[in-house]
Simulated assay, not measured.
Amino acid sequence: MHVAPVGGTAVQDHVALAEIELCGELIIAASAAREDRLSLESIDEVLRVAEERGGERGGER
């Protein structure tokens, strides 16, 4: 039997982990939504799109 050493040699894909986290946040928001679907504005809010765009274009949307 082979056991991975403590301290790990596991490779982490930080982009994939970030995508998984965002998907989880969307799932939570969708399950808490009062309507059948999340609005585009709600999705942007969950994904923090305005924050990202604000940093790139000086706050314009």
Rank of each mutant, 00 (worst) to 15 (best):
M1P: 13
A4I: 03
P5W: 06
P5R: 14
P5L: 14
V6P: 00
V6K: 08
G7F: 04
G8E: 11
A10C: 03
A10D: 08
V11K: 15
V11Q: 10
V11L: 15
V11A: 15
V11G: 05
Q12Y: 00
D13P: 01
D13E: 12
D13G: 06
A16G: 00
A16N: 04
L17H: 01
A18N: 12
A18K: 07
A18Q: 11
A18I: 05
E19A: 15
I20N: 00
I20V: 09
I20C: 07
I20F: 00
E21S: 09
E21K: 08
E21Q: 12
E21G: 12
E21F: 06
C23E: 06
C23V: 03
C23N: 03
G24Q: 09
G24D: 05
E25Y: 00
E25L: 15
I27W: 01
I27K: 10
I27D: 10
I27L: 14
I27C: 12
I27E: 09
I28L: 13
A29M: 04
A30T: 04
A30V: 02
A30G: 11
S31W: 03
S31L: 13
A32M: 12
A32D: 13
R34H: 06
R34D: 14
E35K: 15
E35G: 10
E35Y: 00
E35L: 09
D36K: 10
D36W: 01
R37C: 10
R37E: 15
S39W: 01
S39L: 07
S39F: 00
S39M: 05
L40S: 09
L40T: 12
L40V: 10
L40I: 10
E41D: 09
S42T: 11
S42Q: 15
S42W: 01
S42P: 00
S42L: 04
I43T: 04
I43S: 03
D44I: 01
D44R: 13
V46Q: 05
V46C: 05
V46D: 03
L47T: 06
L47P: 00
L47G: 04
L47N: 04
R48M: 05
V49W: 01
V49N: 01
A50Q: 13
A50D: 11
A50W: 02
E51Y: 03
E51R: 13
E52N: 03
E52A: 14
E52H: 06
R53Q: 11
R53H: 07
G55M: 08
R57D: 05
R57I: 01
R57Y: 04
G58K: 03
G59A: 07
G59E: 06
E60T: 08
E60M: 02
R61P: 10
R61D: 10
R61V: 06
R61H: 07
